Each structure stands twice: as structure tokens, then as C-alpha cells.
Amino acid sequence: MSAPATDRPAKSPEEVRELYDEQAPRFERFGWIEERLVGRYRERLFSRARGRTLDVACGTGPNFPHFPEGVALTAVDLSEGMLAAAERRTAELGLDADLRVADAEDLPFEDDSFDTVASALSTCTFPDPVAVLREMDRVCAPDGEILLFEHGRSDVAAVARLQDWLAPRHFRRMACRWNQEPTDLVAEAGLSVERVRRNVLGIFTSMVVAPSGD
């Protein structure tokens, strides 16, 4: 189970922004390593996107190649450094995307604005991930889908113990709670997982989440 909100370590939005502005060049330069590891899982999940698509906490844009042709892509991130790298990614891919600096806890969009809301490896860094999931739900159309690709505590005991041991150090460096359980966060937000798939020793979780329709 994931820690309750009161026990969940978190950095402030300003700290997260500063950290990822600083780390953006490294993410842009070495993103190919992550793509080799989990690109096929991103592809399997994000190829489901359709229509008006929002990528929340898009980072340097690693999801962009996996969205189908024809989606109307909007992407947001708190870090201007990450978003600058994402803009270069759109140019390389020849994508027409609306990129905006925005706080995921307060998305600058009307209710039901998107047919697909996507996010990858992000709930671990949000100061209040449950609030963000509810914002994703708010901007997703009732007949749409929320697509989440997250990492969390392995279901292999030895790997999980190692994650737990390293978790405080990793959080200090990257503001990342890498041993949380992402499906618990979805449940805490009051949303339902329609499909879930785990890969790479159970560390990575792909979820198709139904919007609440509220």
C-alpha cells in the first residue's frame, strides 16, 4: 500500500521546478536509455490515445513518439527547462503541439476539455499526486480515458527491499517516491482502473483509468 498523504514525502512545487530545470539537459541527453528499457510499454499504452490529448508533466517529451497520428496534442510541465527540451522534440518529430508551462494541480483548462489525458512517471514527484489525478479527471471528457505509465515498488521481494533502502536518498536527489504503489493513488483519488499491466519485475505499471464523469 502507498503511504497516506500525511506521511508521503514531498517537495514544494518551487523545489521540484528548480530541480527539473537543472536536470533537463541530462534527461534530454540520456533519455534514449529509458526509451530502450520501457519504450515498448509506453507505445502499448499511449497508442490508445485519441482526439484531444493532454500530456501532463510531459518532461522532455518521451511520450510524444508514441501518440497516434492525428491526435490534437497539448502538453504541460512545471519546468521551463523540460518544456524547452520537449519543444525541440516536437520539432524533430514534426509535431504540431501546444506546449505550456503549468502546475498539474491547477490545470489551465475547462472541464471535459480532452478525450485522452496521459502521464508517465510523474505521480512520484507531484507534491499532492491525488489532487493531480483529480485534476486529470476534471479535464477528461466522461467518455475519455486517463492513461498512466508509472513506476512503483517491485513485486519481487528482494528488489522491493532495495528500493525501500534507497528510497530516502533517491527522494532527496530527484523528489521521486519510487517505492509507492501507483494503483493505490488512483483508488485514493476515487477513480477506477479499467486495465492494469505490470512489467520489468513489477516496477512499471500501465493503467487505463476511467474518468469519474462528475
Rank of each mutant, 00 (worst) to 15 (best):
T6P: 12
P9I: 02
P13I: 02
E15A: 10
Q23C: 13
A24P: 14
F27D: 11
F27W: 15
R29N: 06
W32C: 15
E34L: 09
L37C: 11
G39M: 06
F46N: 09
R52Q: 04
L54P: 02
N63Y: 03
N63R: 13
F64N: 02
P68T: 08
A72Q: 15
S79D: 07
E80D: 13
G81R: 03
L83I: 11
E87A: 15
R89Q: 10
R89T: 15
L93N: 00
V101A: 01
V101W: 06
A102R: 01
A104F: 01
E105Y: 08
E105L: 03
D106A: 11
D106T: 08
L107D: 00
P108Q: 10
D111H: 12
S113N: 12
F114H: 07
T116K: 01
V117N: 01
L121M: 09
L121F: 09
P129L: 08
V130Q: 03
R134K: 09
E135A: 00
C140K: 04
L147I: 04
G152N: 08
R153V: 13
V159H: 11
L166S: 06
R169V: 11
F171D: 01
M174K: 09
C176L: 09
D184R: 03
V186C: 00
S192V: 11
V193Q: 05
V193E: 07
R195Q: 14
N199Y: 10
G202S: 04
G202L: 00
S206M: 12
G213E: 02
G213K: 03
